[in-house]
């Protein structure tokens, strides 16, 4: 059966190559469009920056607590984790959830929408276009045999169970291009810019992490730190070091 199928060269010229070229061009076009639509003044929220910095500082305090005198440590601990206005203390009700935050900030929602639109619109259009013009074509043949499991991947749109699996239908060729052109884009557009659809789809799942959670965790960690000033030990160590040095000659 497989030997019988001979693909017309016209299919190569009028289906396979145009489809690939169009996919590449659309990818490039979409990159530029999304670049245009990206809101330029992407100023980060000072509160978020501050929270990140607070966490770094609290972590430093926790890690190196034994290097400062007890008084200084207590003062800092109180500064970070007191129940009134400590930096790490998050009032119960205020724990903002990112979903609500997104809706309260129209810019953020707008951004998401732009991103999604720039992804969904061309994708639906190209899919419709492929479906309309090229449905049912066997567009290519891969040069090695494959098991039946690949049928749904490679022969999307052809409902013949007798066709050998190594034949690729046009719609599947479209999908292969959609997900497989990332490497090419990173060559054309530079490493950073190659955001392919698969990645974008992953991002859609949800967004934002909750900084208040990490603040709370850091506060708990800080609360259980026992201060044990390390410096008295250093006096003995310094003595040893000096003794060794003096005895060198």
């Amino acid at each position: 059966m497989a030997e019988d199928l001979v693909l017309d060269t016209a299919i190569r010229d009028w289906v396979l190559i145009p489809l690939s070229v169009v996919m590449v061009l659309i990818g490039v076009l979409r990159y530029f469009v999304s670049k245009l639509m990206r809101s330029s003044s992407q100023s980060p929220d000072p509160k978020i920056i501050k929270e990140g910095q607070v966490i770094v500082r609290a972590r430093n305090l926790r890690a190196a607590a034994n290097f400062i005198p007890a008084k200084s440590f207590r003062a800092r601990k109180a500064y970070f984790s007191n129940e009134e206005n400590g930096l790490l203390f998050v009032p119960k009700g205020q724990a903002s959830n990112p979903q609500a935050q997104m809706f309260s900030d129209p810019n953020m929602a707008m951004d998401m929408m732009k991103k999604n639109l720039s992804m969904i619109i061309p994708q639906t259009l190209t899919f419709a276009w492929v479906n309309f013009f090229f449905s049912g074509f066997v567009a290519a043949k891969i040069p090695f045999p494959l098991t039946q499991r690949f049928r749904s991947m490679l022969q999307n749109g052809i409902d013949l169970s007798t066709v050998d699996v190594s034949y690729v239908s046009s719609r599947s060729w479209y999908f292969l291009n959609l997900f497989g052109l990332r490497g090419l884009f990173s060559l054309i557009l530079g490493e950073e810019n190659a955001m392919d659809d698969t990645q974008k789809m992953m991002q859609m799942g949800g967004f934002g992490f909750d900084p208040t959670k990490s603040l709370g965790a850091e506060k708990d960690n800080l609360d259980i730190v026992q201060h044990d000033w390390a410096l008295p030990k250093f006096e003995q160590r310094a003595e040893e070091v000096l003794r060794k040095r003096i005895a060198e000659h």
Binding site: P69, P232, F234, E235, R237, A238, E239, V241, L242, R245
Partner: peptide, 17 residues
């Protein structure tokens, strides 16, 4: 006293140099 301790730690950390 604290200063002396920190001088000692500096000594230790620099190898007494």
């Amino acid at each position: 006293q604290a200063a002396k301790k920190y001088y000692a730690s500096a000594t230790d950390l620099t190898g007494g140099k």
